[in-house]
Design a protein around this nucleic acid. Structure first.
Length: 367
RNA sequence: GUGGCCAUGGUGUAAUGGUUAACACACUGGGUUGUGGUUCCAGUAAUACGGGUUCAAUUCCCGUUGGCCACC
């Protein structure tokens, strides 16, 4: 059994997910390392933040450094010297976010590379091959993410194609197990259906019939209201198998994570902590009482009010990890200065700060 | 000392004898949800001073002050 459900409370589910590069306590958050690095940080930094997993991206790694190089270096763990787990997003989201450059067919997705414009075809099978070469611990099927709002017809087409691709993905995943760098990797299916409850349930059931190690909810966090996403999760909660992890893709803000966890989600990823950090928005904890909607604030470090602040990036009496220790040595005033004069250290410290905030939030939710 | 050139937001530059004087940077505030991006959006802020010509001057003229250059 790779996933063990330990408890379920109003706060959510707690459990343990066993993966090839270490056991994961759930619920957890995955820092995003799209192109093989969490922007501004080293693998060593992630270790010091005590994150046991990062998320990388099949589509981006396929374009650069490419499938052949990935095989030659023996996978992404070795390449980036990362000893923890890796989940790779399939590229399904890029189908959606790079919609100007794509063409969907039964066979797969025809992309035009955003780098050199070359036409490339990503199929469910190739997607598995690439993720096998990367050596991912959690492999995601290639799915079709729909823009919201969408017509029912569009949602149905995306859902049905996602199911057919999921089936092909699983077959290819099993076929490529032997001889791969990470034969014990897990494969997750991705539920689509937009905000249509009936379609969501149908999608979940079709995927469960194929059988996956975990189930992801895709196609949310694309602009729909928080309440709509909650309704989808509430409908899926009783349907999904209790003994498989559930992954909410692409979200969310801290208070939303609390809400989604309460609705049975075990895994999250989001660009917000890392992207916001690079743009000067940092998360500050205000309370450990997560039932309060304002248990945190997002500070804009550019604001003049931080100019003379001597507040530590992490409170000295709240140091738990080596990253905390580093962060506790600097002040908000210094961080603002680094952003004002455009010193790269500012982005790095802010990134560590925000990831630390998200990781601590998850720790609270596991209590 | 003589002659020449110049003076526009915090900084560097536009423009014009006729409504709300433009742009960039800086400054101030906001955005970012399975990451093409040190990014996107918005806001505050100026015609050196005094006089003259004119219906109307930031623009033309004179003076003052300040700066730059050349010559003695």
């Amino acid at each position: 059994m790779s996933f063990e459900l330990i408890g379920r409370s109003e706060q959510g589910r707690t459990g343990k997910l066993s993966l090839p590069h270490g056991d994961m306590q759930t619920p957890f958050f995955m820092p995003i390392a799209t192109k093989g690095a969490v922007k501004t940080l080293s693998s060593f930094d992630i270790e010091r933040l005590a994150s046991p997993i990062v998320l990388s991206n099949t589509y981006h790694l396929w374009l650069r450094p490419g499938l052949e190089l990935m095989k030659e270096v023996g996978g992404l763990h070795k390449f980036m010297d990362w000893h923890g787990n890796i989940l790779t997003d399939s590229g399904g989201f890029q189908v959606f976010s790079l919609s100007g450059l794509r063409k969907l067919t039964e066979e797969g997705v025809q992309f035009q590379s955003h780098i050199d414009g070359a036409k490339m075809m990503l199929t469910p099978e190739l997607c598995m091959d690439i993720q096998r070469a990367i050596g991912s611990d959690i492999v995601m099927v290639l799915d079709v993410c729909t823009e919201l709002p969408a017509t029912r017809e569009k949602l149905v087409n995306a859902l049905e194609l996602t199911t057919r691709w999921a089936k092909r993905s699983k077959e290819q995943f099993e076929k490529t197990r032997e001889g791969s760098v990470n034969p014990n990797a897990k494969l997750f299916g991705i539920i689509q259906g937009g905000t249509d409850i009936e379609l969501r349930i149908r999608s979940a059931k079709e995927l469960m019939e194929i059988g996956f190690d975990g189930y992801a909810i895709g196609g949310l966090s694309v602009g729909e209201p928080f309440e709509e996403a909650c309704k989808v999760l509430e409908a899926l909660d009783p349907i999904l198998p209790k003994d498989k992890p559930r992954y909410f893709m692409g979200g969310a803000q801290p208070h939303e994570i609390v809400g989604y966890t309460a609705r049975g989600i075990d895994m999250f990823d989001c660009v917000l902590p890392t992207r916001n950090a690079r743009h000067g928005s940092v998360y500050l904890s205000k309370s450990t009482n997560l039932t309060q909607c304002d248990f945190y604030e997002v500070a804009n470090i550019h604001n003049a009010k931080w100019k003379t602040s001597t507040q530590s990036l992490v409170a000295k009496d709240d140091v738990r990890t080596p990253a905390d220790e580093e962060l506790s040595r600097y002040t908000m005033g210094y961080l603002r200065h680094l952003f004002t004069v455009d010193e790269m250290l500012g982005q790095r410290l802010a990134t560590m700060m925000n990831l630390r905030f998200y990781l601590r939030l998850m720790e609270e939710l596991r209590k």
